[in-house]
């Protein structure tokens, strides 16, 4: 795995999903794909129509879809489920919790358009709480995807991991971070930039590239930081968090999610107990989403490189 970040856009996640899900189904006869009338949104519809035994359109019924997926797991399948993030979390939470996790069934759930990525679908479609919900399910895995190479690698691995796996990922293109074909170790954070030990920014999803930009902004002012991509939000790479909390003494988290229950919570939970240092966050201030272009929303909800840089300085000032 190699970091190749230069600020350029990556392949669209939609295209990656549209190619990877059919490929996994072709490679593994136990993989089955279920969707709730959003196949056209991730480019799987044509393949699904040609492969009705491997792709099931459940209609607009997410709770039923998750239950069916869990049932198929119990008879030997490896289901991959997709719908938009709010419907993949809030809408079917009890089904994921009980029919999935509690009952010992294994389901990979893809929730697209996390947080402000929902843009023009607006507040009703804008999950700022999906990671919090999934983190509270015992044994569940939670991923916030950074780029196309990571999405491919995580999907490939998830199908064979037991339990509930939640993948939140956009449909458009993030900035490219990793070389194509990179492999990612689940549960291990990635140090994507190590300029210095003034502070560490622990980011996930769309915020990783913004943390890279923030590092550049800060470097101009002589502040040298480290950036970690914590794409596996659960189980958290506690040892990596502790290592850099100790070496920098100032931690900032950055996530496209409510400050309650997501990456900030996960990091603060481990640091408060094992390595108390100043921790600041860039996250949604316990608000609902709203409609608009993504760049407007990033500004509106303070999810920008500038805000990360401000919080880094605030954390350093508290050392």
């Amino acid at each position: 795995m190699k970091v190749v970040y230069n600020g350029e856009k990556d392949r669209a996640f939609k295209d990656v999903l549209g190619a990877t899900i059919p490929r996994l189904a072709q490679e593994d006869k136990d993989v089955v794909y279920l969707d709730a009338d959003l196949m056209n949104c991730i480019g799987t519809a044509k393949w699904a129509k040609e492969n009705p035994d491997r792709a099931i359109n459940c209609g607009i019924a997410e709770a039923n879809m998750v239950g069916i997926a869990a049932g198929m797991s119990a008879v030997g399948f490896k289901p991959i489920v997709h719908t938009f993030g709010p419907f993949a979390s809030r809408r079917c939470y009890d089904q994921v919790f009980l029919s999935g996790a509690y009952a010992g069934n294994s389901v990979t759930i893809i929730g697209t358009d996390p947080g402000v990525c929902a843009a023009f679908n607006g507040g009703t479609h804008m999950p700022f709480e999906d990671m919090a919900l999934y983190r509270a399910i015992p044994g569940a895995y939670v991923f916030d995807i950074t780029d196309a190479a990571m999405l491919e690698s995580v999907l490939e691995q998830c199908k064979d991991i037991e339990g509930v796996k939640y993948i939140r990922v956009g449909r458009k293109n993030n900035k490219k971070m990793y070389e194509d074909g990179s492999k990612f170790e689940i549960g291990k954070g990635i140090v994507v930039k190590e300029d210095g030990a003034d502070a560490v920014v622990i980011a996930c999803g769309i915020m990783v590239a913004k943390a890279m930009e923030a590092a550049e902004l800060l470097a101009k002012e002589g502040v040298k930081i480290t950036v970690i991509d914590m794409f596996t939000v659960k189980p958290l790479d506690e040892e990596l968090v502790l290592k850099y909390a100790k070496s920098t003494g100032a931690v900032v988290t950055a996530e496209n999610h409510n400050k309650i229950g997501g990456l900030y919570s996960a990091v603060a939970e481990v640091l408060s107990r094992r390595q108390p240092v100043p921790v600041e966050y860039v996250a949604i201030e316990d608000e609902f989403g709203e409609v608009g272009p993504q760049d407007y929303l990033e500004d509106r909800f303070k999810l920008t490189a500038e805000h990360i840089a401000q919080k880094v300085k605030a954390a350093i000032a508290r050392k």
């Binding site: 239950g67 049932g71 399948f77």
Partner: peptide
Amino acid sequence: QGTSLAVGMALG
């Protein structure tokens, strides 16, 4: 919830 689970098992 058992209804959807049963559907999934039968379909599988």
